[in-house]
Design a protein around this nucleic acid. Structure first.
Lengths: 123, 123
DNA sequence: CCTTTGATGAGAACCGATTATCGTTAAAGC
DNA sequence: GCTTTAACGATAATCGGTTCTCATCAAAGG
């Protein structure tokens, strides 16, 4: 998928190092540690390219713009911190949601989001 | 909360009759059955007023603009149809989500969204 | 029925997020 | 190194959703 620029490397590293879903703006700030004059347009361009390439996955949460996380991991959910607005991975999933829908509905998938205060904000 | 206009009545009836969360545009189309030249600005004005008055509740779902549903009902979740984009209420909730978060995280609330095909789309 | 004034409708303005433009920069192959 | 051209950075443009503006309309009380 094209050239290996310093920028793309820094963007990839930002996601790998963060270990949680990032918004383009968050990714920009993290990646600027490596490439100080990185532009937001480049982040959008690369994030889209990395999604197309299957390296990133879109994380949609209620009431906020899209976040992105590295792809290829197991089924999981997310915790959304009300204090810092950060999103973290939650590895467990109770499952068994298909039975919840009214009869006649075909359940194909589900999303589960926990809200509260993350460890660093609880302090 | 102000005057009882034909418009506000039609908007309220749209939510009551629909029995599911509506987007402003959906509400507009339904309420136009009663007030044909209803304007979208009036829908937004009244929806906001009804939310402030506690008569409507905001329903935020991933990847789509806000929907609204009549307030004061029990804890429940939603089913999002991939075919018609409609959202329906799901009355059951397994509960016990607080234990899912990593240690140190304080869970205060949760959202659960089922995705698939609704009864009318399954046909 | 008349008056007052809050509500409405149409469309302009706004908003934050994302995408497109375009001159410049720097990977990558020779 | 030199050349080619994909990628970059800055910023303008766009986008869908929502709010604002203002002249007009119609609730509600007298």
């Amino acid at each position: 998928m094209g050239r290996n620029t310093r920028q793309r490397t820094a963007i990839r590293r930002a996601f790998e190092h963060a270990g949680r879903p990032l918004r383009p703006r968050e990714c920009l700030e993290l990646a600027r540690g490596e490439v100080p004059d990185l532009g937001i347009a480049t982040v959008y361009r690369n994030v889209n390219a990395l999604v197309d390439a299957g390296w990133l996955r879109v994380v949609e949460l209620p009431g906020t713009p899209d976040r992105y996380e590295t792809a290829g991991r197991n089924h999981h959910h997310h915790f959304h911190c009300r204090r810092c607005d950060g999103v973290y991975e939650v590895e467990t999933c109770p499952g068994g949601f298909a039975a919840m829908a009214p009869t006649g509905y075909r359940v194909e998938d589900h999303d589960l989001i926990l809200y509260g205060v993350c460890r660093s904000c609880v302090g």
